[in-house]
Computed example of a mutant assay.
Amino acid sequence: MKKLTLLIAAAGLLQACGNKGPAYDATGTFEADEVIVSAEVAGKILWMPIEEGQTIAQDSVVVKIDAGNLALQKAQIEASANALQQKTNDVQPQLKLLQEQLQVQQAQMATLEKEKRRFEALVKADAATPKQLDDIVAQINVLQQQMLVTRQQMNVQQSTVGTANRSILSEQAPLTKRADIIADQINRSNVINPINGTVLLKYANAGEVVGAGKALYKIADLSNLQLRAYITGDQLSQIKLGQQVKVLVDDGKKNYKTYSGAIIWIADKAEFTPKTIQTKDERANLVYAIKVLVPNDGYLKIGQYGEVDW
């Protein structure tokens, strides 16, 4: 009878040990890099066909915000820029008039030069007086001065009109930049999904009016989750970056599901033990946080507990 009692006690002890589960070196919860996507311009949401739990591809347009007002602003700025050309002065009519005047003076100069040569010949032949030749030379000098003034008037006219036009057209560059800024805002009215991931939360719906910076939805890549766990200083020397470890997750049947993971981050400073985290050495007051990257087969969830064994 005594032998039978010992056998039953031994069997109970073995069963209790079997239900205790596997040992682990650290424990923590799963998390992911969550991205909150916000509106970059204010307006009414015209289109937002996403739902929580939906997987969205990177660079896809997921939200459209009404940009009609921005389009009108851009058109107004472009019209103002185009109107500047009509405000500029055309220097060609004035230049044409002065060029015609110069051509007449050049024709007169040619005639006077011819007369000068004729009178020089007559003076040599004593058929004309030197005074007549001097009068011709004086007329040539006066005409040369007139031609010089005409050329100066042409230069002044070009410079004056050019300066005035540059002053008017100097407003075109700022207007163009303003139009470019509005065009960029119009492009930003189409919200582009930044990563491949699953929508975790929606903060807005189609038909709502949102302001710039308003959160629209939260998304995260759940294909790989990070187990954030805590270790003691004694365990710190046992791990390194890139080290392969086992991650154990309770499958709800008093058993554990095993995953392979890799340590991708080790804190460089110790911190006080979080209340929700247990470590192998419960007496430790300071612990180091680590992150283990674990491929997700769909069963791992954000906030779920996991245990690390190396």
Rank of each mutant, 00 (worst) to 15 (best):
G306C: 06
A71W: 03
E31C: 02
P22G: 13
E40V: 03
Y230D: 02
A267Q: 07
V41A: 12
T163M: 08
Q235G: 03
T150L: 06
S159W: 05
V292D: 09
K20R: 12
R118S: 11
D268Y: 10
I50C: 14
E31D: 10
L286W: 09
A11K: 01
G53A: 04
A9G: 11
N19G: 14
D309M: 02
V249Q: 04
G213A: 09
A16L: 07
T160N: 13
A138D: 01
A215L: 00
L200E: 11
D66P: 01
T198A: 05
S38C: 09
G43C: 09
D221R: 00
T163P: 01
T27C: 10
R178G: 14
A220L: 01
Q103G: 14
A26R: 00
Q108W: 15
Q132Y: 14
K218I: 10
S167W: 02
V137Q: 12
G298T: 02
T163V: 04
I219K: 00
P295V: 04
L293I: 04
A42L: 00
Q144V: 05
Y24A: 13
Q99V: 06
G207S: 13
L102V: 07
L84V: 03
L133G: 15
T55K: 01
V294P: 04
T55A: 11
L201I: 08
R178N: 13
L84D: 07
E78H: 04
M109D: 10
E171G: 05
I65E: 05
I239P: 08
N285M: 08
L286N: 15
I264Y: 03
I302Y: 13
N187R: 03
L241I: 03
V91D: 14
V294S: 08
L84P: 02
A206E: 12
Q105I: 09
Q172G: 09
N296S: 06
Q145K: 09
W265R: 08
G303E: 05
L236Y: 11
V191M: 03
L236G: 07
N205A: 13
V287C: 06
N190D: 07
I65L: 02
G43K: 03
K2A: 15
Q235E: 05
A11C: 09
N19F: 15
E115M: 07
Y230P: 02
L122I: 02
S260I: 00
Q94E: 15
Q73I: 09
K246S: 15
S159T: 07
N82Q: 08
G233C: 02
A183Q: 13
A179D: 06
V287Y: 07
V292H: 10
L169T: 06
S38L: 02
A32I: 00
I186Q: 13
N69L: 04
T29A: 04
F272C: 06
S237F: 11
K131D: 15
K218S: 15
N224H: 14
S223I: 00
G242L: 01
V149H: 10
L227Y: 04
V294A: 03
Q139M: 11
I168W: 08
Q103S: 14
E100M: 06
K257N: 05
K253D: 06
Q139N: 14
T176D: 15
D134K: 12
Q278D: 14
I182H: 06
G197I: 08
V123Y: 12
V62A: 15
I290W: 11
R118A: 11
F272S: 15
T258D: 14
S60Y: 07
G207A: 13
V104W: 10
A42T: 01
K177I: 05
P174C: 12
